[in-house]
Design a protein around this nucleic acid. Structure first.
Lengths: 232, 232
DNA sequence: ACTCACTGCCACAAGCTTGCCAGAATTCGG
DNA sequence: CCGAATTCTGGCAAGCTTGTGGCAGTGAGT
């Protein structure tokens, strides 16, 4: 699968520069001019890497806030900070937001691409070659792609491969309805709708074995299934 | 119209396997044993999807080169890479070239077919699909197609699929009257006028359960229904 | 060869949704 | 104010969707 990079940067000219450079390297790139747009997009689907300009307009704090939110959504998601001013650099490092890299805007496009590539390589090395995040945390759920392991409330839930990818698909789109077709695609199987129903039953059973009150996986009648977002 | 898939793979046995599997799914498949043959065919007519073995003979670079050429010819053409080797080098290079998917040869035929189907679905969704706004906000109403969820004054309103599409149709034309016929079309059902009346009744009831003063959905005598614009 | 886990699917049960009817209520035109 | 047309409403039966237990085929591991 192609890597998906998100760029949050309000100056259109700069944003397009970065987009072009990264696209030329075969990445799938989406640019966002405003924080809110980015936030909404991320709620739908997390990219594989995020580049954030912390000097976004007058809302200096916004970039930090977004970073914090992303860290909550996905612990392992690579984040690169961009800043026009050198002075911000200290602030950023002081905040320990967990960004994976900091860049000032005066560096060359080539350098940026190089950093992105390097970051992907590093993430890959850690996670054994998958393009997905190492670990996702969503409320009571901990999800590790490289270990193929799922934890619910600190307890391990033993899932099979197919079940794993179905859950994976649901969790990567929290709150969104996924049709049985989509789940099939994401789990890489080509089967009957009913079979997905069976898998979901088994998944529920396994979660309930660990936590009888498990209730995070909604059925949406006539549509599909949905992973209930943490807050409800 | 039938989809045309091209397979570039030098080992005849493997190539035929793939061809058969995909043909059984109703695709029109052409196999090419040598790069040059494929290149010439593509110059005449581009297929709808290409599967390339990157380990073609001793010409390791050939597959990548072909991919590059195809990308120039058609930016959106779906390309799947096949390889016997699982080394990172192949993966990275393949992805940078803009391949849409990447498979090692040890996966099952079924999985390959599944990927092909999924890729076509994705491409279709991007081009042919209507480009809906994902989230709509109209005054007290929040509406998300992805989530199949409707909120009125911050409270969730549980609607069925048909009700959902009816509301969707009304909200996309705020202040305009929609006939029962139009609502039928938009909800993709073919029924009696009276049935739409029933649906509207149920929709109103559900909104009123959340907010007894709900009054946003007007009846226009002799014509149809209308979603009252916000301030009204 | 044998076991065991996984997967896909079937068949039946349970539940929800939908379409429509018939009578009541409302609106419209004169 | 009256009659005709239109809409509202409660309710119900058919049909579709999902839950559930189970079974057979496959493939990996012993």
């Amino acid at each position: 699968m192609q890597r998906h990079i998100a760029i949050v940067e309000d100056e259109a000219a700069i944003r397009h520069n970065y987009e072009d450079a990264l696209k030329r390297y075969g990445y799938h790139v989406t640019g966002y001019g405003r924080l809110q747009a980015a936030r909404e997009a991320f709620a739908r689907r997390l990219p594989d890497l995020v580049i954030i300009d912390v000097g976004l307009g007058d809302d200096v704090e916004g970039g930090f806030e977004l970073c914090r939110e992303l860290r909550v959504m996905s612990r392992g998601l690579p984040i690169i900070f961009l800043t026009a001013r050198d002075s911000d650099f200290d602030v950023i490092s002081g905040l320990r937001l967990g960004a994976d890299d900091y860049l000032t805007k005066d560096i060359s496009l080539q350098q940026i691409v190089a950093r992105v590539v390097a970051l992907f390589r590093r993430v890959e090395a850690l996670s054994g070659g998958r393009s997905d995040e190492k670990v996702m945390e969503r409320g009571d759920l901990k999800f590790s792609v490289d270990r193929m392991e799922v934890n619910w409330k600190e307890q391990s839930v033993p899932l099979t491969v197919t079940e794993f990818w179905i859950i994976h698909s649901l969790i990567r789109h929290p709150g969104h309805v996924r049709t049985r077709q989509q789940l099939m695609d994401d789990a890489n199987v080509l089967v009957d709708d009913q079979t997905i129903t069976s898998h979901v039953k088994r998944i529920r059973r396994k979660f309930q074995k660990v936590d009888p009150d498990f209730d995070q996986l909604d059925t949406v009648y006539g549509a599909g299934y949905r992973w209930k977002p943490a807050s409800g």
